[in-house]
Amino acid sequence: MDWGAIFGNAAVELISPTTAAYALAALGLAVHFGYTGLLNFGQAGFMALGAYGYAISILTFGFPVWGAFLVGVGASVIFALILGIPTLRLRADYLAIVTIAAAEIVRLLFTTNTFASVTGSANGLSGYKNEFAALNPLAEGSYGFGPFENNAYDTWLRIVAWSIVILAALFVWQIMRSPWGRVIKGIREDEDAVRALGKNVYAYKMQSLIFGGVLGTIAGMIFALPRAVVPSNYQTTLTFFIYAILLLGGAATVLGPIIGSMIFWVLLSFFSGFIARAVEAGWLPFMTSIQGGQLRFILVGVAIMLIVIFRPQGIFGNKKELAFVR
């Protein structure tokens, strides 16, 4: 068994753009769920809007990178408004169902053949990376060391992705310490009480929904840059994975989503690598390699259950400060 390759592949995930994208999406979810108490199950929809908004702007309209970025962000702001207007006045569980439904609507609209000329329907889109690569100040060549060695494009992508994650984390940290953050946390605890103190709860929830959604959208763009945009990537399962990361790290924390994402991806990659090679080596005669792949989803599901039951505050959460210990 090639342990070196297994550990190497797992280490790659530590700073991969995908890990950064999940960390950012989870940070957005922390704003929604951990701080405001909004049960957004449509984070995959926000991510899809980011990915498609960026790709379509470049491919169909020939926008520059910053223009495509703004289109994605604008789309998610509109999406948040459409979602928020009917549901933010309702009980928390209604929001959960409506957001999950809205994210599915977004995915189905990107999948349908009706708009295939723009969205590429089930095949998705590719070929939008040149504009971003053109901004790369790094010379050709390879950077980094060991498992973290990458070519210029991949290094550039990692630098941008993780800079965005760090900036966003600082932003969230600062704003949650402000009086605005205090109102937001108050709403999580009891929105009627906050309303009775003269705060426009509806507007605050909307701001939170938009803010966390925009983080999810930017995450969607980072997620799209190392691969193609394919609608089947934005299924509800994506949202569940991000919840798993958030719960792992701690819902009402800033570091939790980031470290959670790193742990999640490193473990998942390690596990997949291990199982795949164990099956190859004939250690697991009752299992095919495909079943090995499915085993990791089973494991994520079980992990979500166990974390919620036995360590609801996550790794970084303070036992007391947690949205759902009530």
């Binding site: 205090r182 108050g186 999580r188 605890e189 009627d192 009480a193 009775a196 007391k320 949205a323």
Partner: peptide, 11 residues
């Protein structure tokens, strides 16, 4: 104020 108190517990 409310009949059932609404202290914001985790603040």
């Amino acid at each position: 104020t409310f009949q059932l108190t609404k202290a914001l517990g985790l603040l």
